[in-house]
Design a protein around this nucleic acid. Structure first.
Lengths: 192, 192
DNA sequence: CAAAACACTTGATCTGGATCAAGTTTTTAC
DNA sequence: GTAAAAACTTGATCCAGATCAAGTGTTTTG
């Protein structure tokens, strides 16, 4: 498992042998079965989590009991709740596995140490955060200015492959529409 | 003007005299009249911009000519287009002044140098980015799960003071609704 | 391998917020 | 100070997408 993360690191940054070993020494391997929670609402999130295999979803539940999918994360991405981690406050989110998954966790203390000790690691983490922010901005723009159909087409072009491994109900929720609407859109667009 | 930024730095971080002076040596003061552009669609954004006075808005224009407000930024906040800056690509956004404003600009080269040379500065910049990301996540959640009225109430509670200095049309656009809808919501909520 | 649980589709109807239209009020600029 | 331009309000009507309902697949699990 760890090799996948090692490969990711090698692609994104340049590390000395000692640095690589330091990183590995803090890695915690975690396996999740499908439907198992990584984080539940109310818990305080303590980690930085990298996915080596599988697919997770982050969602919240509103007072009516409706689930709202916040994000999907697959292998070679990070997941977690930055807000809960940063402010050490109970999370408003749940994170669970859509498929059997494998993760590498770093406690926040260890992660901060790695950022402090290894500038290249810190730069990598920063670049990821920048890209996440840009992606979030783009999603806001899409949610404000796109029709339901445009949202779906944008989603499948941006994340090809997601549609085939994630249930439609969850994708509909992620896009801010009902499953019925997504079903009808798929029928329509298939025709074209 | 610069004192406002200096005060901001002093609050957010701890710098030596030499570091403060290095930062100041790269600062470019820029004044904007109301309605003046800081960035226009198609331009490549080159700076990191801190607002010492005034209020700016970032917005895009879709193919139908409709404006979509992406964000507002006031004094003691940063603005710019991270995507254009990071990838050196033409911006999809316009940024203009809602009020006469004063900014401090740092070219990206100088800004990166400051991040490299001054770890405390780098940490501050990072913390800001983290908070921006968290705010973006929360906005996504609001836009997916709130009704128009909830969006408005959430906005005024999160950004008190904005409602009085920003035209309603722009707030409506930011919240993803028409000015008419916002007007009716304000009428209703005023009653209560 | 059956049956329960879950995921998806399709149709009928409803509704929150959009659109169109016609004011009134406020701001801007000479 | 006043005319023109923006900004806001209010009403009437419309529609994209929600909701409700009743199916038909398709997994999951004992």
């Amino acid at each position: 498992m760890y090799e996948i993360f090692q490969k990711y690191l090698d692609e994104k940054t340049t590390l000395t042998k000692a640095e690589s070993e330091l990183i590995q020494s803090y890695a915690i391997i975690k396996k999740l079965r499908k439907r198992q929670y990584l984080l539940q609402e109310g818990d305080i999130w303590k980690y930085n989590a990298f996915i080596t295999r599988g697919c997770l979803r982050t969602y919240s539940v509103d007072e009516k009991g409706t689930e709202h999918v916040n994000s999907f994360s697959i292998e070679n991405w990070w997941t977690g709740d930055r807000e809960s981690l940063m402010f050490q406050q109970p999370s408003r989110f749940n994170i669970d596995a859509i498929e059997d998954s494998e993760l590498i966790l770093f406690t926040q203390d260890n992660f901060e140490l790695l950022c402090r000790e290894i500038p290249a690691f810190n730069n990598m983490v920063n670049a990821i955060l920048q890209k996440s922010f840009i992606a979030a901005q783009n999603r806001i723009q899409a949610s404000l200015s796109f029709t339901a159909e445009e949202k779906y087409l944008n989603f499948i072009s941006k994340y090809p492959g997601f549609a085939s491994r994630i249930p439609q109900t969850m994708i509909a929720s992620y896009l801010g529409m009902t499953p019925e609407t997504l079903s009808r859109i798929r029928k329509q667009t298939a025709k074209k």
